[in-house]
Amino acid sequence: MSKLEIKDLQVTVDTEDGPKQILKGVTLTINDGETHAIMGPNGSGKSTLAYSIAGHPKYTITGGTVTLDGEDVLAMTVDERARAGMFLAMQYPVEVPGVSVSNFLRTAKTAIDGEAPKLRTWVKDVNAALEQLNLDPTFGTRNVNEGFSGGEKKRHEIAQLELLNPKVAILDETDSGLDIDALRVVSDGVNRFRAQEGKGVLLITHYTRILRYITPDFVHVFVDGRIAEQGGPELADQLEAEGYDKYTSALR
């Protein structure tokens, strides 16, 4: 089971001029096994939504609820959220100097499972995950995200998705900056994850091209901190043809 329910979520960030409201009441339910896409213009608050659900300290929740299978996500610490089954593939993955990918992956896996993975199968699993994402086997010895190309960072995020195997994955622009081959490799990874029973996906993107590989059940148009419209996959094509004008002009 994996049901992520976001109700009337309101979020501010601290600025020099005091708190600024970014999310203005977001309501969205991802039922067991569903994939939802969120599309919206720059600065509309998509990453804010993703980070707020993951618990980034920069954001202050001023209203609303987020639950995973009925459990209060907002009451959990960042790491508790991950252990409860949330995963965020970040738009800008962070460098961690001196910490190798293999050490990082093993530490994360141990934390998520509550016990260290069996060494033999684990090494095999890691190598397989890296290989499936077209990452060199020596990747494990490199420091986390240090000197990775943009595409390598994104593929590394999806390798983590597959190895940690959460209940719900939020993918924040995992497709941007990828060439066509990398896009396919990443999409295949997400689809392998989705093919399992009951996994939820919230896919944030600017482009419809990834939706040709990962077909969403629902598409939401995100404008100015809230969902302005929702529909099926056809809504993405309409956005591609018409842009966000009709939603943003309503604000002016």
Binding site: G55, D79, R81, V96, A108, I112, Q160, L164
Partner: peptide
């Protein structure tokens, strides 16, 4: 944050 978002 990055590390903790992976359950650590």
């Amino acid at each position: 944050f990055y590390l903790r978002a992976r359950g650590i």
